[in-house]
C-alpha cells in the first residue's frame, strides 16, 4: 500500500472509539472496523492517528489492516456491490453475474465507477447459498440472480439517483 491521499480527515470523529478501545488490549481490529464505518475507508492519516493513539507501531497497524479483506484504503462508491463467490454461487453461475455487472457498469472486482456511484467487491460466501447466485448491495441481499435480473437491479438503483 502506498500513500494515496493527502486529505485531512476529521480525526475527532474517532475520539469516542479510541477512548473506548485504545487501552483494551487486542482491540486494533475493532478500532479499524469502527474507523472504516466512520470514514467509509481507512485514510492514511486515520491509520497514523490510530497508531499514535494506541501506541502500536504504524507498520504493524498497516500489517493488520492489509491482512483482512474487509478493510479498504480508497473511498468506495455510494453503492457497494458485494458479489458472492461461494461454491453454490459458483456452481450456479456467479461468473455470468460478474460479467453482467461489468457490462452494465464497466467495473470489475475492486473497482469503482467514475461517477463514484458503484463499487464492486467479490466476497467469500455470504451464506445465502440456497438463493445462489447472490449479491449484497449496501446490506440488502439479492438472490436467484440472472444476468438480466442483476442488470435490472443496478438500473433501478441508478434511476433512483
Amino acid at each position: 500500500m502506498s500513500c494515496c491521499c493527502e486529505n485531512k480527515s476529521d480525526l475527532t470523529l474517532l475520539a469516542d472509539v479510541l477512548n473506548e478501545y485504545k487501552s483494551v488490549k487486542g482491540s486494533l481490529i475493532t478500532i479499524l472496523q469502527h474507523a472504516q464505518e466512520i470514514y467509509g475507508y481507512l485514510p492514511e492519516d486515520v491509520l497514523r492517528h490510530i497508531a499514535e493513539q494506541t501506541d502500536i507501531p504504524v507498520a504493524k497497524v498497516l500489517g493488520v489492516a492489509t491482512f483482512y479483506t474487509q478493510f479498504r484504503f480508497k473511498p468506495v462508491g455510494k453503492y457497494l456491490i458485494m458479489l458472492c463467490q461461494g461454491t453454490a454461487c459458483h456452481v450456479n453461475g456467479s461468473e455470468r453475474i460478474a460479467a453482467a455487472i461489468k457490462e452494465e457498469l464497466g467495473i470489475e472486482d475492486g473497482q469503482t465507477t467514475d461517477d463514484g456511484l458503484f463499487s464492486i467487491k467479490h466476497v467469500a460466501c455470504l451464506g445465502c447459498c440456497s438463493l445462489s447466485p447472490v449479491m449484497m448491495i449496501n446490506g440488502d441481499t439479492y438472490g436467484n440472480l440472472t444476468p438480466d435480473k442483476a442488470k435490472q437491479i443496478l438500473r433501478e438503483l441508478k434511476n433512483e439517483e
Binding site: 463467490q85 461461494g86 461454491t87 459458483h90 467469500a124 460466501c125 451464506g127 445465502c128 447459498c129
Partner: peptide, 11 residues
C-alpha cells in the same frame, strides 16, 4: 468464522 464458501449452518 464460518469460512467454507458454501456453508451457512453456523449463521
Amino acid at each position: 468464522d464460518e469460512g467454507d464458501p458454501g456453508a451457512f449452518m453456523d449463521r
